[in-house]
């Protein structure tokens, strides 16, 4: 029972990071129909931002804030430099653009800083543990879950209680009509990228805290998982992205924890098979967007 509870905490912790990333992907996709595979590199940039801030001997909380701020800046710069000139291009062109941005950033980090990961040592209290009866939970897991709840709550408030959020939700429903209503497209798109950057920045903080280092390829795997989560949840659906993130995290953790030893090397294949099975049952995703359109 203790192990099951502990693995549930692990699943929530990992699923939360996936949910943050998936929500960032879905936010941008819902407005500009772009699956931004350079989203993982925003996360990497945030990681290096934290590393750089710590090198400057800034206190850890300031370094963490700096990492998130750098991620927002990077996402905005990405939109302005790479994606705005491609506005109106077809989905394939946008996809290839995002891959190009991703590769350029990776190579710049590999050759500009180091191909090797750089260690990041966060405050000792983050590495402590909490004993809850038979269960010993790492502080990082607790912080991860709390950060995810707070971030998702703030996102919900922004979308539902502010004019900007209303504009974004409207843009996600029908971008052309929103423009006809006099709302500036550039502002809405930039806001979507800024939000996705902030979410990637928060995910990066949790990721770096759990992994202890940042490297040029850090964002590659998480963005792939986040993409799977957005598809599973329902492409373009913000709620679906969050749900998809938690489902993907839970599937991964429980398979890792409870598969027999001999079957462990097949974990990834089994995990993807389960997700494909879910998509066969619900082709539009677990929580599809209202205006779902599949290519």
């Amino acid at each position: 029972m203790g192990t099951l509870l502990q693995q549930t905490v692990n699943a929530l912790s990992l699923g939360g990071v996936y949910a943050l990333l998936a929500l960032g992907l879905a936010t941008v996709f819902s407005i500009v129909r772009l699956i931004n595979f350079a989203h993982g590199e925003v996360m990497t940039i945030a990681g290096y931002g934290i590393w750089w801030a710590l090198l400057l001997a800034l206190p850890a909380p300031v370094a963490i804030l700096a990492g998130v701020a750098v991620a927002v800046g990077a996402a905005l710069a990405m939109e302005r430099i790479a994606f705005r000139p491609m506005r109106g291009a077809d989905v394939t062109t946008l996809l290839i653009t995002s891959f190009a941005v991703s590769e350029i950033i990776k190579v710049l980090f590999q050759n500009g800083i180091s191909a090797r990961p750089v260690p990041i040592v966060l405050p000792a209290w983050l590495t402590s543990t909490i004993d809850l009866g038979a269960v010993r939970i790492g502080m990082i897991s607790v912080v991860s879950i709390a950060a995810v709840v707070l971030a998702l709550g703030a996102m919900a408030l922004l979308l539902r209680r502010t004019p900007l959020g209303l504009a974004m939700r409207a843009a996600a429903e029908d971008f052309a009509v929103v423009r006809l209503m006099g709302i500036k497209a550039n502002h809405v798109v930039a806001l979507a990228f800024a939000i996705s950057g902030a979410l990637a920045g928060i995910a990066a903080v949790l990721w770096v805290a759990q992994r202890g280092s940042v490297d040029p390829l850090m964002g590659a795997t998480p963005v792939l998982k986040a993409f799977i989560a957005t598809v599973l949840g329902g492409l373009g659906s913000l709620g679906g992205a969050v749900l998809g993130g938690f489902v993907v995290g839970a599937v991964e953790v429980f398979l890792q924890g409870f598969l027999p030893e001999a079957a462990l090397p097949y974990r990834e294949a089994i995990s993807l098979s389960i997700i494909i099975g879910l998509l066969v049952l619900r082709p539009d995703g677990l929580w599809p967007a209202a205006n779902v359109s599949r290519s």
């Binding site: 192990t3 912790s13 996936y18 990721w207 759990q210 795997t221 953790v253 890792q256 030893e261 990834e268």
Partner: peptide, 22 residues
């Protein structure tokens, strides 16, 4: 006593650690 398996660039290791703890 036993062995665990991970995927390279695996996102997290907490599930493996929980197995070790058990």
């Amino acid at each position: 006593l036993g062995e665990g398996s991970y995927t390279m660039n695996q996102p997290e290791f907490s599930a493996i650690v929980t197995t070790i703890q058990a």
